[in-house]
Write a protein that binds this DNA or RNA. Sequence first.
DNA 1: AGGTGTCAAACAATCGTTCGTTTGAAGAGG
DNA 2: CCTCTTCAAACGAACGATTGTTTGACACCT
Lengths: 174, 174
Amino acid sequence: MRDLARAVNLQGGSLYAHIESKEEVLFELVNRAADEFLNHAEAIPANLSPKEHLERLIQGHLEVIVRSLDHATVFFHEWKFLNPELQRKITARRDAYEGHFRKVIEAGVRLGEFEVEDVRLATLFVLSALNWTYHWYRPGGPLTLESLSRHYRDLVFKTLGVRSNRSTSRANGA
Amino acid sequence: MRDLARAVNLQGGSLYAHIESKEEVLFELVNRAADEFLNHAEAIPANLSPKEHLERLIQGHLEVIVRSLDHATVFFHEWKFLNPELQRKITARRDAYEGHFRKVIEAGVRLGEFEVEDVRLATLFVLSALNWTYHWYRPGGPLTLESLSRHYRDLVFKTLGVRSNRSTSRANGA
DNA sequence: AGGTGTCAAACAATCGTTCGTTTGAAGAGG
DNA sequence: CCTCTTCAAACGAACGATTGTTTGACACCT
């Protein structure tokens, strides 16, 4: 808390003129990170095909992680240190977010765009691959967000058994 | 430290007759978790096909995570709190472990078993999907390790563009 | 006797938080 | 223009608890 205070040019105790407790601040942090993910997902138009929709979900997800590495890290980990009631609020939002992915994959399977044995496991698999990005991606490196998004979109599509659209994956055949 | 002491029926300070410091204990924990992963990987026979080899790697990886959730959690996170020198020892072993996956994927691409644009990114993608398992898998639930391994193996194979072996993934087509 | 392991106590540092006081700017009344 | 009051914001010291670790005395085993 004293570190936080110093960051806004305050004495440790002075923070408590503005906040209730350390936990309240943590919740605010985690919850706003949840906002970032959910806002991206909810801003996607509803009339897209599952493939297009999922591509946007992937882009948004990676964008949030890459552009706000710290927020993503807090979102993925620190909610465990909230009290049970606040934890429930966060996990509810996380489940809602996962729902966006699951539903679009379900729709894709229904329309024959995807071919997947177990939608729940496939959703988990895909989201896992995306989430872990915060462990290794460092902005300013050689890999741009756009390049990462394209590669990961292709990998996800393969994972979900997309058949057509060989345009991008037929490059090197040596 | 007092909690650790109580777990072995000792007083807090008595621990220091056996250990150097808290950091030493943490390193031991993280390093032994690294052992678990590496031992599994190194026990795989060298004469397998890339597909078989990768399947064993996936099985071993998930087995370590599922059977020692706590160890895996510590391995994935707590190494960051070691001093730089000890951190290097851990990341070196992690890189070696990732190398097992990368090399087998490389070999698979070379032999035409896999079809992948960027081996590095594909390796990262696959390992990410596997690693995240510790976030949600809970032993004793409806999903057995064996079932998880099979599903994830199929998903990884699709991700890596495996063409043949439709035996397991042609079950439900309604 | 001589280690070895354990205890209880204490250590300095740090934690989140509280509290009484001071500060400084804004508004009211003359 | 000056005073007086008000009030939120900040200070700085202190709180009780907890942190990792050290110390010296005591007991046990060879």
